[in-house]
């Protein structure tokens, strides 16, 4: 069983290496978020709606790009280790049953930056690792 598991993990890794979208930029948050870095586990918990508060108990507002947006596909696979369709399944299960609100979907990266800049507690992602006014980039560890 563990062999099969690692075999599949290797397959996933291989897909990443062959993917042309391998260069993915940063995790961005609203400037009022206190954190400077974020763990992969924590990022995954936020995007699977399990972690709803920042360490200082400020509510997290989660932003996403459309399921088939290349930047979303790359983010889901590389940063979260999940396929976009699995994320969508989790969001649908949680939101339609009334247990959580689904992440807020924006149409492109410009809107992503604008909404993250304007929303207290917001988290999102972009394709370029750049510094933007009023947005903080978190270091992933």
């Amino acid at each position: 069983m563990p062999h099969a598991y690692f075999f599949f993990r290797r397959l996933v890794l291989l897909t990443f290496l062959l993917s042309p979208l391998a260069a993915l930029g940063g995790i961005i948050v609203n400037s009022d978020v206190e954190a400077q870095r974020i763990s992969i586990a924590s990022l995954r918990n936020i995007y699977t709606l399990r972690q709803t508060l920042w360490p200082n108990r400020q509510p997290i507002v989660v932003f996403v790009l459309p399921d088939d947006h290349p930047v979303n596909v790359a983010f889901a696979k590389e940063k979260l280790g999940l396929y976009p369709y699995r994320l969508r399944q989790t969001w649908d299960r949680m939101s339609f049953s009334g247990m959580a609100s689904a992440p807020i979907q924006v149409k492109d990266e410009n809107e992503m930056r604008a909404r993250v800049r304007a929303t207290p507690g917001a988290i999102g992602y972009t394709s370029k690792d750049m510094v933007y006014d009023g947005i903080k980039t978190l270091r992933l560890e």
Binding site: A114, R115, A118
Partner: peptide, 14 residues
């Protein structure tokens, strides 16, 4: 509806 509201929306419809 929440598209014109830039901040985090308080409601969602799907």
């Amino acid at each position: 509806a929440w598209a014109d509201e830039l901040a985090g929306p308080r409601y969602q419809i799907q």
